[in-house]
């Protein structure tokens, strides 16, 4: 990231959802970035109330809050009929992810799964990445969220098309990279 690039989160409505200690971490990071419209929720119920009443541009949530898996929260959000927040940008913050939860987490409809341990630089880079997303939303019986099929531009693109090229090597190896890009499991 260009250190001189300007970042402006002053007008961004951000909902943070995490337990008390995690909340203090997220609040310090986003406060340091200059975010002013922070909704700090430590339970799913608090977050539900905010998401039903206020327009939110970015949701950042932990993968487990107050006994509720983060992927359930995202699924609930994406199915909010008639609410603009169903299309909000979502970054799901994950620690160790149990094997049984990997697919549920990957397919919940978040824009990005960001792996702990966090650092301010990593968080800022992911926020900028999500802000540049142009993927349409997809709704099916089993999935609602950003289109999971997408293309990561690579330097090789400028080299022209080669025989047999369908996806770039990055796509073919890991088409869901931004969803699992940071995941350690």
């Amino acid at each position: 990231m260009n250190p001189d690039a300007r970042i402006n989160l002053e007008q961004v409505s951000i909902l943070l959802l995490d337990g008390a200690v995690g909340m203090s971490v997220l609040a310090q990071i986003f406060g340091g970035f200059g975010a002013r419209k922070l909704y700090k929720c430590t339970t799913f119920d608090e977050a539900k109330a905010v998401l039903k009443d206020s327009e939110i541009d970015l949701v950042v949530l932990n993968d487990e809050v107050d006994g509720t898996p983060g992927h359930e929260v995202v699924r609930w959000l994406r199915r909010l009929d008639g609410n603009v927040n169903a299309f909000a940008s979502v970054i799901l913050v994950g620690g160790h992810v149990r094997r049984s939860q990997v697919q549920l987490t990957r397919d919940c409809g978040a824009n990005f799964l960001m792996a702990k341990p966090l650092s301010p630089r990593m968080v800022l880079e992911r926020v900028v990445w999500v802000s540049r997303e142009k993927r349409p939303f997809v709704g099916t019986d089993t999935y609602a969220g950003p289109d999971r099929r997408f293309h990561i531009p690579s330097e090789r693109e400028n080299l022209g098309r080669r025989r047999g090229d369908g996806l770039s090597p990055v796509d073919a190896a890991n088409p869901l990279l931004p969803l699992i890009g940071d995941a350690k499991t």
């Binding site: 990231m1 001189d4 970042i7 402006n8 989160l9 002053e10 007008q11 961004v12 200059g34 909000a88």
Partner: peptide, 15 residues
């Protein structure tokens, strides 16, 4: 992308 729109205004700080 509402996030992009909200971030596009003047102000802010260097990364």
């Amino acid at each position: 992308n509402r996030l992009a729109k909200a971030m596009a205004g003047p102000g802010g700080k260097k990364a």
